[in-house]
Measured scan of single mutants.
Amino acid sequence: TETYTFDSEDQAEEFAQRAQKKGYTVEKRKENGKFKVRVE
Score class of each variant (00 low, 15 high):
1 T>M: 11
1 T>V: 14
2 E>F: 15
2 E>A: 14
2 E>S: 14
3 T>I: 12
3 T>Y: 11
3 T>Q: 06
3 T>H: 06
4 Y>C: 08
5 T>Q: 06
5 T>V: 12
5 T>F: 11
6 F>K: 00
6 F>H: 00
6 F>Q: 00
7 D>P: 04
7 D>G: 05
8 S>A: 07
8 S>K: 07
8 S>Y: 10
8 S>G: 05
8 S>L: 08
9 E>P: 05
10 D>Y: 09
10 D>R: 09
10 D>Q: 12
10 D>I: 11
10 D>P: 06
11 Q>E: 15
11 Q>A: 13
11 Q>L: 11
11 Q>I: 08
11 Q>F: 05
12 A>F: 02
13 E>Q: 07
13 E>M: 07
13 E>V: 06
13 E>S: 07
13 E>N: 13
13 E>Y: 06
13 E>C: 12
13 E>T: 08
14 E>F: 08
14 E>W: 09
14 E>R: 11
14 E>C: 13
14 E>Y: 08
14 E>D: 10
15 F>G: 00
15 F>A: 02
15 F>W: 04
15 F>Y: 04
16 A>Y: 09
16 A>I: 11
16 A>S: 07
17 Q>A: 12
18 R>S: 10
19 A>G: 02
19 A>P: 00
19 A>E: 06
20 Q>I: 14
20 Q>W: 08
20 Q>G: 06
21 K>N: 12
21 K>V: 07
21 K>Y: 08
21 K>E: 13
22 K>H: 13
23 G>R: 02
23 G>H: 03
23 G>F: 03
23 G>T: 01
24 Y>N: 04
24 Y>K: 05
24 Y>H: 07
24 Y>C: 12
25 T>N: 11
25 T>K: 14
26 V>D: 02
26 V>H: 02
27 E>H: 13
27 E>D: 09
28 K>P: 03
28 K>Q: 11
28 K>T: 14
28 K>H: 08
29 R>N: 09
29 R>L: 15
29 R>D: 07
30 K>E: 13
30 K>L: 12
30 K>R: 11
30 K>P: 06
31 E>Q: 06
31 E>D: 07
31 E>C: 09
32 N>T: 03
32 N>L: 06
33 G>W: 02
33 G>V: 02
33 G>F: 03
34 K>S: 06
34 K>W: 07
35 F>G: 00
35 F>S: 02
36 K>D: 04
36 K>N: 07
37 V>Q: 00
37 V>D: 00
37 V>E: 00
38 R>N: 06
38 R>C: 10
38 R>P: 00
39 V>N: 01
39 V>T: 04
39 V>M: 04
39 V>R: 02
39 V>I: 13
40 E>N: 13
40 E>Y: 15
40 E>D: 11
40 E>H: 14
40 E>A: 13
